[in-house]
Amino acid sequence: MSVVEGAIVYSNLLVLLSVGLTMTYITTGVPNFAQGSFAVFGSYISLSLLRLYEVHPYHTIPLAFVLGGFLGVGVYILVLRPLIRREASIVILMIATLALDLILLGIIGAYSDFLAGLTHRSATRFIFTPYDFNIAGISAILFTSTAVIAISILALFILLYKTKFGVALRASMENPDLAEVMGVNVEYTRLFSWFLSGALAAMAGTLLPFRQEIVPSTGAIIIVSIFAASIVGGLANINGALLGGYIIGFSESLLTYNLSTVFGTGVLLYSKVISLSVLVVMLILAPRGLTGINWRRVIWSKSSSP
């Protein structure tokens, strides 16, 4: 896989993860620290079907979508809703998602041992690259991940902008109180966003092993990039997640690669440092992200100043 291909694949997956994170943040107001583990959950669905029934990982995408969605909804109903009903503060909700992340890590780790016992092959460390193939000289993962992201985003935008439910959804994202007064059931929109968040993350998880090695704690490693992507784009806007995902994905893989040709391969260790730096710089310059900047105002103040 060439570097550019790798960068595109990685960015596609990061967009899937950060779109979900942003959606749940907008509707429920909680930054979900377990988003990375949602993805690893998807990876293990693919691994199980591959090891037990020899299903190619690409064919497990629909199942991962559905199961991931159930995980997302389950998390919202069982973990977050009871706390929100008790009017827990945002920090408490964040600690709850950290606890959830740890529980998921425990479950995934336990399952990996269980699966290893069943198949007599280690399941705590795996990669799917040997199962990938080439289409016209380009790796299939590039096509698959691009197709998945294109279909998901297209479907999401049709839903948001062309259906009645989408209008209600956008209304409750902009102003939940007003939407509620107008007869929108805000609870449905929350359930929907958690379903979608889990589903997109699990789909990203089925494809992630084609690019990097997966261990049960992979979630803790990728969460930095997911948050960086969402915040750089702007946590309050879904389009921001799209933008941020590509910015972080490309800077993490392409920038690091280019730096490594100058400074030597030692730089490759610092790919996460780059996403962190982008995140911190962004937070200092524009805490509300790229989509939070009032561009018209920026341009206007530039053109009017002498």
């Binding site: 973990v79 606890a99 529980i103 890590l105 336990a110 041992d113 269980f114």
Partner: peptide
């Protein structure tokens, strides 16, 4: 008769404990 290592059980238990504290005795 756990078919997995105890560290995973530790993570699950302490994660659940944290959640129960947040819910019932913040």
């Amino acid at each position: 008769h756990l078919p997995f290592e105890a560290v995973w059980l530790e993570y699950m238990m302490f994660g659940v404990l944290m959640y129960l504290i947040l819910l019932y005795r913040p």
